[in-house]
Amino acid sequence: MDRIPILKFGNALLVTIQVDMHDRLATTLEEDLTSKIVAHSARGVLIDISALEIVDSFIGRMLDNIAAVSRILDADTVVVGMRPAVAITLVELGLSLAGVKTALNVERGMALIEGRLSESEADDADDED
């Protein structure tokens, strides 16, 4: 597999990582996501990593980068479904992914993105008054 598929889901993009990614695949995903956020004017990015058995510093950096880039493009990134063993290992490794939002599963992640969207819409409405 050369690319990880990116699905459009209302205002958000959904990526489900199901393979043990080699580094090039991760880099490609980062680039693909950036261009898709712009192309679809996406307001949120959901990355489901529930199938991942490990997250090393390279993948961690990819997640951090995606979050930072999407923030600039006014989209929220939520990483969902991290396994307990992976979380423990990441903390021990020294990665906190401080810039990344997290949620337990896709449903909760989606709710997080929608919650922010309705908040900002409400703000917009307030501004118009």
Binding site: P84, A87, T102, L104
Partner: peptide
């Protein structure tokens, strides 16, 4: 803090 950080990574 490690425990807190790990829980946050999982979304709690």
């Amino acid at each position: 803090l490690k425990t807190v950080a790990a829980a946050r990574l999982m979304g709690a």
